[in-house]
Simulated scan of single mutants.
Amino acid sequence: MFTGIIETLGEVTALEKKAGNLNISIKASITPELKIDQSVAHNGVCLTVVHISGNIYTVTAIDETLQKTNLGGLTIGDKVNLERAMVLGSRLDGHIVQGHVDQTGTCTGITQADGSWIFSFAYDASTGNPTIEKGSVTIDGISLTVVDSGTNTFKVAIIPYTHEHTRFNTYEVGSIVNLEFDVIGKYVAKLMGKAVGSRQ
């Protein structure tokens, strides 16, 4: 379980393809505090630490993860949003994030707004994943509030701190991001869909 509050940025140092899996090695300031078998969210994807050497650790992404997220497009030198699993009893500063990416989305617009930025995103709405005004959404592991919600689009406002300390400063129109929709919203949408279907 995660909160969507990014701890630090990591840098991809090596990518090793093994059959359908991808071993991803990352240099990060939190590496000395990690241990084998620990869960870490990478751009919002929960992966298990399998090796540690100095300030570099390695995780393995299976083929399904590579197909459903933006991790398959990583290159050496890329920055990755990192968050360790939350500690039971600590403050939940973001929202409940599972580290299970629902789908990817595409950045469709970036505008400056008096010291902050408005980022627009589009996604395939046929999956039934909802956003609502002032609701929560996770973009590459970052807990954010939706400021404008459409059928298959939404916008978020990014403050300077988030822009500086996450991958948001690397995004451009066309960038592919990982999306995890609010878990409560997903359950409600699914239950409402079943309820409507049962009356037809």
Rank of each mutant, 00 (worst) to 15 (best):
K79R: 14
T145D: 02
I36Y: 15
E133G: 15
H51W: 05
A85K: 11
L74S: 03
T69W: 10
G141M: 02
G105S: 02
I110A: 09
R91T: 13
G99D: 04
G44D: 15
D140R: 09
V97E: 10
V80L: 00
V87K: 15
L74E: 04
A125R: 02
A125F: 08
Q103S: 09
V40Q: 07
T60W: 04
T145M: 05
E64A: 02
R84K: 15
E11P: 05
G141E: 03
I96D: 04
D78F: 02
I24E: 00
R91A: 10
E33K: 14
N21E: 06
G77M: 13
G141K: 05
R91K: 07
I110E: 05
D93N: 11
V137D: 08
A85H: 02
E11M: 12
N70Y: 02
N81K: 11
E64D: 09
D37H: 11
N21Q: 11
K68Q: 13
I26F: 06
E11Y: 05
Y123N: 10
I26S: 11
T60G: 04
I132W: 04
G141H: 00
H95K: 11
A122F: 06
D114E: 08
T111H: 09
T106V: 09
P32L: 09
V59Y: 00
T106M: 06
G77T: 10
N43I: 11
D114P: 06
N55G: 01
S126I: 00
T48D: 04
L144F: 04
